[in-house]
């Protein structure tokens, strides 16, 4: 029977201690013990003060996201032995999810998460009255939002989000997955307004595209893909005055005209007002050889192929 040292993050405000620390617990357990079962056994057999949120233990309620050796997981669907082999470490360190403030041990203050969720207007706003029976929706149209509908709001994506670490106001992956779920629902009548709501400061364009949310989502929701699709919706709805949208547009124009990126033209197009203020930086970059020598980059030879590629991409989104 394997034995494991669990190094659990402790923060016990009631005890008068203001600092957090890690505490080691030894536990003998079965080959197929989940991380949640291990924590609950520690709670029941060794220390009843260990606090953790959990409920369904079948990966659907979204309560028990935490970090196991640095990686955000749902504790209930993660085997202890897998954590060890996956991380190459014998000790399993358990920490609360990142980007949140601890309340007690593994329990964090989720208030900002729920506020952001509510901020994306996560409810259907249809045009006109409902029919007597169900609205008819083609199967394919409904399946378009099937992936995002699987989001269980566990906040694993927020735990790993680099944009959120840099900007606590960033709306974030799960909320945007929900935003897409409604914006792309053909029964909803607020597509354009949603595109506006999700743009702007802390909006979809502020995502750093680090892909960690896709990587760590335990349900395969792929929030980054949803954010990207929201970007496309913004374009389709002509909500493109946002700096982020202009940046994306600059890429496209550059590709269309020269067949490749023209970095010197992208900055002023993205932010015509702000760009001149960055001139000193540009100069320094040029001195260090970080900029192309000429603003007129080479055109690629077979630009028709690039155009075809762009057309292809357009048709698939």
């Amino acid at each position: 029977m394997p034995a494991t040292t669990f190094r659990i993050f402790r923060y016990q405000p009631d005890s008068g201690e203001t600092e957090s620390y890690h505490q080691d617990f030894q536990l003998e357990h079965g080959e197929k013990t989940t991380l949640l079962d291990a924590i609950l056994r520690i709670q029941n057999e060794q220390d009843g003060t260990v606090a953790v949120r959990y409920s369904c233990r079948s990966a659907i309620c979204g309560s028990c996201a935490c970090k196991a050796n640095g990686k955000t997981v749902l504790a209930c669907m993660t085997q202890v032995e897998h954590v060890k082999t996956d991380s190459g470490q014998e000790i399993v360190q358990v920490d609360p999810i990142g980007n949140f403030t601890p309340i007690k041990d593994l329990v964090v203050d989720m208030t900002p998460f729920w506020e952001k969720f509510k901020a994306v207007k996560p409810f259907l706003i249809p045009d006109g009255p409902a029919p007597e029976k169900e609205r008819l929706v083609p199967k394919a149209a409904m399946e378009k939002i099937a992936k995002e509908s699987k989001c269980i709001l566990c906040a694993a994506c927020y735990s790993e989000c680099n944009s959120l670490a840099a900007d606590p106001e960033f709306v974030g992956p799960a909320a945007f997955a929900w935003g897409y779920r409604f914006a792309a629902d053909e029964r909803d009548g607020q597509r354009k307004n949603r595109a506006k709501l999700y743009s702007g400061e802390h909006g979809v364009w502020d995502c750093t595209r680090c892909m960690f949310c896709n990587e760590r989502c335990p349900k395969g929701v792929d929030p980054r893909d949803a954010i990207e699709k929201l970007g496309s919706i913004a374009f389709q709805e002509k909500v493109t005055s946002d700096k982020g949208a202009r940046h994306a547009k600059a890429f496209l124009i550059s590709l269309r005209t020269g067949g490749k990126l023209n970095e010197i033209l992208i900055a002023p197009y993205t932010d015509p007002i702000g760009a001149p203020f960055n001139a000193p930086l540009a100069l320094r970059m040029a001195q260090k050889g970080k900029l192309p020598k000429s603003p007129l980059t080479h055109r690629v030879k077979d630009r028709d192929q690039v155009k075809k590629l762009i057309k292809n991409v357009k048709e698939t989104i």
Binding site: F123, A130, E132, K133, E134, L136, V137, K139, M142, D185
Partner: peptide
């Protein structure tokens, strides 16, 4: 039962659909 299903659908429930008709499967 049917009234409640239609109500849930009107509120946005993502029910699986029939291939051709678009009705709830």
């Amino acid at each position: 039962a049917p009234l409640e299903i239609y109500q849930l659908e009107h509120w946005g429930a993502v029910f699986s659909r029939q291939e051709d008709s678009g009705k709830i499967a």
